[in-house]
Nucleic acid binder design. Structure first.
Lengths: 228, 228
DNA sequence: TATTTTTTTGAACAGTTGTCGAAACCTGAT
DNA sequence: ATCAGGTTTCGACAACTGTTCAAAAAAATA
């Protein structure tokens, strides 16, 4: 397992280059030769280290999935200790969203990039990619849904599933189309601002999910609006 | 401009086949020969009718954009006549979501398929596709945001932009990953049910946007939850 | 029917794709 | 200095890509 070559570590150089390119153009649209050029290596090196093109994607997933899931579960665990239901819900939502944007541990700046990659891959839906993505995040998502359900007692679980997936949709959309937010707000909002994006997603999702706790009729809601 | 060939109309046969394939695998991943095979025609026919591969995508957009936008503006116009703010908001949201799922006029079943195509293209972000997509829906989206703003007076416009884009993200995500909703709810919810999806998206977005009308503090929200 | 126009076909093109194997290279231990 | 190991390079491969074009076919027009 000795290291050789001009690079410090060719494997991570390849993964870094591939992750950057995949997160921008998707899996199928990126040629192995592009990755090789970006990593300053020959094409053959890629298949030597990872066997397959799909093997590169597998390795990318492997180095992100575990730490990101661990961080999420850790934060969710912290959040569930909060007494106040509304504050707890906010903490749980942050536990899910923040690790998706920020890097986990050593991988600097990789959080948002990897999440963006996941977003693109889910849309691309290539057969090769599907096998790798699999359900790497299903268990965590279920824990996340359970934690939410405890914050909004009495609500139907189906509704929570729907709205928690809408959270994921909002997350993906923001990472893929940040410029639309900037443009539609005429520059007043910055879609590229991760901190602001986190805040917006968390608050919007909070409102969406919290409404399940006390399902007011539309008439009641309208009345409340009129009286304000 | 006479019609010929074995098919009723080769042009629409090509567009139908291409739309189906593009909406499933994206623009770059579909080969012209696949489209030709699906349309029961030769490859040369495609470039004969549409010049380019991009030309096919252009034609798909052209036959959907106008009617879908028209239908949306029509429904928004109807909705703005509703007095009750909450009911009006619901109607506006439906005006945006329903045409994205249901077909407009003659094109049977094309609504959801075309929206799914848009979702995939936005993720793919290929240069060729970007030029075609352009801002075909920007004007309508702005009218949509304006109409929402009237329902939630006093709220910041930035917030409305963010949350309206989250609506779009939820829409896209639902069309791309319907099976995730079914799976995470253990079959209790059906992600493929368009009517249910419309209802869920509209209600969740309503809660999200309506909360902007009367920004309660988290303490107040928590108190309300406790008292219930 | 004969002529003209539109459409379809089949083949070919230059370029790119992922993958593979043999040779060259580098490094550290013997 | 020799050897063995992992690593990198280069070249080639078959398959597939979008696009083009002349010829054949079909349809429309006269």
């Amino acid at each position: 397992m000795a290291k050789a070559g001009r690079e410090i570590d060719s494997r991570t150089a390849i993964l870094d280059a591939a992750e950057e390119l995949f997160s921008q153009h998707g899996f199928g649209a990126v040629a192995l030769r592009e990755i090789a050029r970006a990593a300053d290596l020959n094409v053959g090196s890629l298949t030597y280290h990872f066997g397959d093109k799909a093997g590169i994607l597998s390795a990318i997933y492997e180095r992100h999935t575990r730490p990101m899931n661990a961080r999420r579960l850790e934060l969710i665990s912290e959040a569930t200790r909060i007494e106040d239901r509304s504050a707890r819900l906010t903490a749980i939502l942050r536990a899910y969203v923040v690790p998706a944007f920020r890097s986990s541990d050593d991988l600097v700046g990789g959080g948002a990039r990897f999440t963006r990659l996941r977003a693109i891959l889910s849309a691309e839906g290539s057969e090769q990619a599907k096998l790798i993505i699999a359900d790497a995040f299903d268990a965590t998502t279920r824990a996340f849904i359970d934690a939410i359900a405890d914050c909004v007692p009495g609500s139907k679980r189906d509704d929570i599933v729907w709205r928690s997936q809408f959270l994921l949709g909002s997350l993906y959309y923001t990472l893929i189309n940040p410029e639309r937010i900037s443009r539609l707000s005429d520059g007043a909002a910055d879609g590229f601002d991760h901190d602001e994006a986190i805040r917006q997603i968390v608050e919007a999702s909070h409102a969406s999910l919290w409404a399940l706790a006390r399902p007011l009729s539309k008439g009641q809601l309208a009345q409340a609006a009129r009286s304000s």
